[in-house]
């Protein structure tokens, strides 16, 4: 099972590729004979790690036992579970890890966007054995990726990770991505489109108020806009994602003001002008300075729903109406 690594090559300070190969148990030298290697040694790292990590011996034994019972089935299981796990974790090969080490960057263990995988739930229902095989197959990968020491660490955490993964999957299937207990209202409103509106109502104490409007067909629900509006049905954001919002805002601003805006046209705030019409004319350079400071960031969280094809024709119609009086200012 063990592959024979030419001592001379690895010890003789050959190039990094050879060292890497020897480290990972691949044949080094010119004569790769990979077919032979793969046929003979489908799992070199496991066998290697068994030598190095006593804990792994037991695991490997457990892993190796089933093939005697039903080797083919087990192989399929491992294949399926590898797919499942690779959705949840970075299961990249040695190249990924070694390159990340070289660059000094750590690759996060979890995938950034794990996909919901129903298979894992059914797998868990099947037997405890399959669960253990999940752990093992993961360990196997980890071991092959990062050597004995890392393998032993991951073997400690592997069970936990799997449990965590299952929890994630469960949440993903049931509720969605980012739902907190506080947001029961919003949970109810799943499937509703959402708009932020500024309402002026002279029957209210304060005439002007910000509201959130949720709509599904003819059902409308209105909420007072809180100070900080939680994003709904979106990816969780880290606390320091202001740059993201700024970026989005800038982008949106650019898009919305891409064409000369008669619009904002309709009246720019002296404190918050945003039309390109103004910028293009450069009548007042002060505006550009103010521009970056003003807007309410929350407004960018506005959920934009369907983009009706009608708006294209409508825009077109409008342009026809206005370009005559306005002139057309090119976008930047």
């Amino acid at each position: 099972m063990l592959c024979s690594v030419p001592a001379g090559k690895s010890a003789g300070g050959s190039n990094w590729l050879s060292r890497l190969r020897s480290n990972k148990g691949f044949p080094a030298g010119d004569d790769y004979d990979l077919d032979h290697f793969l046929a003979q040694n489908p799992n070199p790292s496991t066998s290697e790690s068994t030598q190095l990590d006593p804990q792994r011996i037991a695991v490997a034994d457990r892993l190796e036992a089933p093939p005697q019972i039903g080797g083919r089935v087990e192989q399929e299981w491992i294949g399926v579970m590898d797919n499942v796990l690779s959705e949840l974790f970075f299961m990249g090969g040695a190249d990924e890890i070694s390159s990340s080490r070289l660059s000094g960057k750590r690759i996060p263990r979890k995938q950034t966007n794990p996909r919901i995988c129903v298979t894992s739930a059914s797998n868990n229902n099947n037997s405890g054995n399959s669960n253990s095989s999940v752990v093992v197959s993961q360990k196997k990968k980890k071991g092959s990726d990062s050597g004995p020491k890392t393998a032993s660490l991951s073997s400690d955490s592997g069970g936990n990770t799997t449990r965590e993964a299952n929890v994630n999957v469960g949440v993903g299937v049931g509720v969605g991505v980012d739902v907190n207990d506080e947001d029961e209202d919003e949970k109810e409103l799943k499937g509703y489109s959402r708009s932020e509106v500024t309402v002026i109502d002279t029957s209210c104490g304060s005439w002007k108020s910000e509201k959130l409007v949720f709509r599904r067909k003819s059902v409308w629900r209105v909420r007072e806009k809180k100070g900080k509006v939680r994003s709904f049905g979106r990816k969780k954001r880290k606390s320091g994602t202001d740059e993201y919002d700024h970026g989005m805002e800038k982008k949106a601003k650019f898009v919305s003001s891409d064409h000369s805006q008669e619009a904002n046209a309709h009246l720019q705030s002296s404190t918050n002008p945003s039309s390109h019409e103004e910028q293009n004319l450069k009548n007042d350079s002060r505006e550009e300075v103010r521009k970056g400071t003003a807007d309410n960031h929350n407004t960018m969280r506005e959920e934009v729903s369907t983009d009706s094809p009608d708006n294209i024709s409508q825009d077109f119609k409008k342009r026809q109406v206005y370009t005559a009086g306005l002139g057309w200012f090119p976008a930047h």
């Binding site: 500024t198 002026i200 002007k208 008669e262 619009a263 309709h266 009246l267 407004t299």
Partner: peptide, 20 residues
């Protein structure tokens, strides 16, 4: 007549003030 013409991409936060 600003209210009768089709407003082109107004700021929806400011439009209520114009109407008011």
């Amino acid at each position: 007549r600003i209210l009768n013409k089709v407003m082109w991409r107004p700021d929806k936060r400011k439009l209520p003030s114009i109407i008011l």
